[in-house]
Design a protein around this nucleic acid. Structure first.
Lengths: 212, 212
DNA sequence: ACCTGAACACCGTTCAAGT
DNA sequence: ACCTGAACACCGTTCAAGT
């Protein structure tokens, strides 16, 4: 077998390098040229692996979703409520790990195999809980929305913490006050506990639908 | 009063022009240079109005949120459940109107006056519904998350429709099937109805908390 | 006080050419 | 089959200079 020209790296290597840049320098720094340089490749060589930057971003989303333990979430020995709570918490944690992961998710369609498998697992769980398919599909959608939305709000909160305060002051004068928002902030509510609480409320209501 | 050099345009004009570009050419086309050109301005003149592109994007988010009818959502004559349903539907519709609005929301902190006022209105509504502040804050967070998450999933779905299919096929082979996902898709469930349903479930569960 | 022109250090993507 | 070099048409942002 002749050696000939061989792929020096794999698609997975590229995605890994892209995540390294994402974590260290933020979403804006994830560029085709930057990732190529990190791998000692020419920018043009990247187009041998992915047809566009968007395709690379989509592969990154898929890599995040691939770390979810869907087998555990499908184990009928564990109550569905516990499984869906664990799965949702897992996804939320994965999205929180990477600073720019939310922008990633909203930047393209969620139609990769792992995204579809996640949806399938959620619908299966709710139907196995004696829910009609239409309701199960809506429940699965609501759970995915709650996780994505919570992650988006998390990301927005984190983005506001650091250097944004000066810019905020320059843009908007704080004439009016928001007493309830401030009082709630003073309670220092735990975000994780709040997320679990909200999901529990959703699951409570879904259980009522089933029992109806 | 001497005429002298005057602002030829306002911040609002710039935001309007940016939205026009967003709707016609998508989020990627919203550039400082592009918006400047649309207004017959030099790119550098833009920095007289906004300190950075990010500040412009944040102002766009605020403009979207400013269209919400918070007064109606605060009217005690109407049951809170109806008011929060209307407010959530309104926000979701606004986010759906602009193709790239979701990316906008996730691209920076949600700390403008209209974002804070929205949060304040939600917390006020839940507390007036005899909910303790801590629960009301969490309920408000859950509602915002549900709206943002649903909008994100909507956007992802729309992005998948058109030219993405070819790229999808190139990236991922469709070996495995997703029977439940496909069966649910075949039901052609209405997205709006599903959103209202999910929010109703959340509000049902919140009502139980109050009655506890 | 507002705006311009030129410049710096970048982008994504394409295309002909090399081995 | 894989990769390079050069090029095209863009970016966000800064800075000195004009009126």
């Amino acid at each position: 077998m002749k050696p000939g020209p061989r792929r020096s790296i794999s698609q997975a290597d590229i995605v890994d390098a892209a995540f390294e840049i994402l974590e260290q320098k933020g979403f804006a720094a994830v560029s085709v040229r930057g990732v190529a340089a990190a791998l000692s490749l020419t920018p043009t060589a990247m187009y041998t692996y992915f047809p566009s930057k968007n395709a690379l971003l989509r592969a990154m989303v898929e890599q995040v979703l691939s770390t979810l333990d869907l087998d555990a979430a499908s184990d009928p020995a564990v109550p569905w409520r516990d499984r869906v709570q664990a799965l949702a918490a897992e996804l939320r944690a994965r999205l929180a790990e990477h600073t720019g992961a939310m922008v990633l998710v909203t930047s393209g369609p969620l139609d990769g195999p792992h995204a579809l498998a996640l949806n399938e697992t959620l619908i299966a769980g709710f139907t196995s809980d004696r829910m009609p398919l239409a309701d199960a599909a809506r429940a699965a959608h609501a759970v995915r929305a709650q996780v994505l939305g919570a992650a988006a709000l998390d990301a927005a909160e984190r983005a506001g913490g650091a250097s944004a305060d000066a810019e905020r002051a320059a843009l908007w004068s704080d004439a009016t006050a928001y007493p309830l928002t401030e009082a709630a902030a003073a309670l220092e509510l735990d975000d994780d506990a709040g997320f679990t609480w909200a999901l529990d409320r959703l699951l409570d209501a879904f259980a009522s639908v089933t029992a109806r």
